[in-house]
Amino acid sequence: MRESEEQRVTLSFYKYLNIQDPEAFRDQLYIDLSNLGVLGRIYVAHEGVNAQISVPEDRFEAFEGYMNMSAQLNGTRLNIAVDDDGKSFFKLKIQVKKKIVADGLNDATFDVTNKGTHLSAEEFNNLSGDPNTIIVDMRNHYESEVGHFKNAICPDVDTFREALPVVEEMLEDKKDKNIIMYCTGGIRCEKASAYYKHKGFKNVFQLDGGIIEYARQVKNQGLENKFVGKNFVFDERLGERISEEVISVCHQCGNPCDDHTNCKNDGCHLLFIQCSECAEKHQGCCSPECKDIINLPEEHQKEIRKGLNKGRQVFKKGRSEKLLFKSYAKS
């Protein structure tokens, strides 16, 4: 797939719905999407579906037909990537989860359907200029570091679950303000907006379709783009360009850069920002220690990382003492 010239469309979608048997739903979805050549990562839970996928361009119409014919998925918005090389996913993985987004909330304690008012890109731009408006980034620190809306509050948090109480405390004395929340594709704000309304916030809004849909509408309608930098995405691309500004720096040399990578040491895989010069100098590693390890014989490397399962260390990005430049510019 990495070498393939097949044209593919990267997209994401989510839908809150009642799934009685997530395992059976998962199994059938896997069969159906495999037959369409779909690759990606999908979470299924009793509360719905959350998907990031890529579809062969020549089968995209068939995929849309499948979605439209599905009794449960019909009407789901497809958020098409705005900066796509088709190399976003290399296999299809569908997992059954307790929730489609880990939020730590007890849904039985509030009305999850009482969501905030959805805003189009034009409506967002208009309301964001109101002095009585506060814009809140509901994403994690490594996401907002490379891109965010102008004048947005960007909480220094590692997870969405952590962001919910942090934002609530930050805005405790501002419950009468216009609160506009945004995230990548909108799914986090669906739950967060209902939670904050439950907590007494009077005027809660959310960017419909998130940053991805905002960028599409701005381009198609010739609107002012109030997002600066890159939109971090959770696939092999690790980011899509929304504006030409680079607001972050290489974590190793401090020069302007907003390209995320994973440390090439399989026993580390730290997610961090690295420029091309540092990538060459450090062989794609986050530290001299990791560089030394990847130059050892493979069997020796396996012994060193035996029993470790690092995955993609998104939560440690920017937190590691190995990285010298961790601050980022705000707009």
Score class of each variant (00 low, 15 high):
307 G>S: 09
7 Q>R: 07
83 D>G: 11
105 L>F: 07
294 I>A: 03
240 E>A: 08
106 N>M: 12
98 K>F: 10
280 E>C: 09
281 K>P: 04
178 N>L: 10
70 S>T: 09
6 E>H: 05
4 S>D: 06
3 E>Y: 07
75 G>S: 13
97 K>N: 15
193 S>Q: 02
284 G>I: 11
171 L>Q: 02
244 E>V: 14
289 E>P: 03
158 D>V: 09
83 D>K: 09
59 R>V: 02
276 S>N: 13
275 C>I: 09
257 C>H: 09
172 E>N: 11
132 N>F: 14
282 H>R: 06
161 R>K: 14
152 A>D: 08
4 S>F: 05
181 M>C: 04
96 V>N: 15
189 C>I: 03
134 I>K: 14
189 C>R: 04
156 D>P: 08
276 S>Q: 14
45 A>V: 13
315 F>Y: 15
194 A>P: 01
13 F>A: 02
95 Q>K: 15
4 S>H: 08
41 R>M: 10
169 E>D: 13
211 I>V: 15
34 S>D: 12
109 T>L: 15
310 K>H: 10
146 V>W: 03
278 C>V: 14
82 V>Y: 15
72 Q>G: 04
112 V>G: 06
158 D>R: 08
184 T>N: 08
223 L>G: 04
289 E>F: 00
240 E>V: 12
105 L>D: 10
324 L>H: 12
320 S>G: 06
327 S>N: 13
254 G>R: 08
47 E>Q: 15
109 T>D: 15
271 L>V: 11
77 R>Y: 10
281 K>G: 01
141 H>F: 11
320 S>Y: 11
275 C>N: 04
292 D>E: 14
18 N>Q: 14
213 E>M: 07
287 S>P: 04
134 I>D: 11
22 P>L: 06
160 F>G: 01
219 K>T: 05
241 R>G: 10
221 Q>S: 09
104 G>P: 12
308 L>T: 15
38 V>D: 00
137 D>A: 14
265 N>I: 06
140 N>V: 06
168 E>R: 11
167 V>W: 07
63 F>M: 03
45 A>P: 09
